[in-house]
Amino acid sequence: MHRNGPIALFFHGLVVAFVLAPLVVICLVAFTPENTLSIPTTSFSLRWFAAIFEHPDFVQSFYNSLWLATLAATISILLAIPAALAIDRYDFPGRDALNGLFLSPLIIPHLVLGVAFLRLFALIGATGSFFWLVFTHVIVVTPYVMRLVMAALSGMDRSAEQAATTLGASHWTVFRRITAPMILPGITGGWLLAFINSFDELTMSIFVTSPQTVTLPVRMYMYATESIDPMMAAVSALMIALTAAAMLVLDRAFGLDKILVGQK
C-alpha cells in the first residue's frame, strides 16, 4: 500500500467535507428554535422534532416507506438470486435478453416509469393499492441487486462448490452451505442498496402513491411545496440518525467490512 501524499489528502478532505457539509447543516438547522431555516447560534430547541409527532400523516408515511422499502428490497433479492445464478451459470436461449430485461429499469427515467404505471394502474383498476406500489419499487431496485449479486457470483471460486459436491452435498445443500455464504457480501450489499433506493425514491412514487400509501419522500415533497419550515430539517436529521444507527447495529452484529466487502 502506498500512502497518500499531502495534495491527495487535501483533496480527499475536500470531497469528504463537500459531501458531509449539507448533512451537518441540516442536522444543525433541525435544532433551531426559530421559525425559519436558520442555523441555531444562541440556543438549541427540540420543538421541530416535537412538531413531527403532531403530524400523524408523517409518522404514517414513515411506516409506509419502511414497509415498502423492506418488502421491495427483500422481494428483489429473492428474484435476483435465482436470476443471477441462472445467468451466471447456464447458457440458455434468451439469456442475454433476460439479463437486459433485468437491467433495463436503470436506463428508463423514473418520470417515464411513473407516468406509465399511473396509466397501467388506472387501466387495471389498481390505483392506490400498496401491493402494486411494492411491485413498482421492486422493478426499479432489482437492477442494483442484480449487479451486486452477479458481481459476487462471478468473483467466487467455483471449485469450492465442486469440492462440496464431491463431498456428497446435493445442489440445494451446496447453495445453502457454500454458495450463499460466499456471496453474502453481494446479497447484503444489494439488499441495503435496494432498501435505500426504495426508501428515497420520489420521482416515480409521486405518480403511483395514493393518499393512503404516501411515502415519506412524497409527503416531504408535498409539505415542502406549501411551507418551508425547519420541520423538514428535523425529519431529515431523524432519517440520518436512523441510517447511522442501522449501520452501527449491522457493524456490531456482523462487521460491515465482512458483509459489504467480503471477509478476505
Binding site: 471449485s159 464431491t166 452435498a169 452451505r177
Partner: peptide
C-alpha cells in the same frame, strides 16, 4: 453423480470453504 461417487478430491486452488 459426483456426489454419489464418494471420491476424495484436492483441487489445485485447494477450494477450501472460506467461511
Amino acid at each position: 453423480k459426483p456426489s454419489r461417487r464418494g471420491l476424495g478430491i484436492v483441487f489445485q486452488s485447494y477450494a477450501l470453504f472460506p467461511h
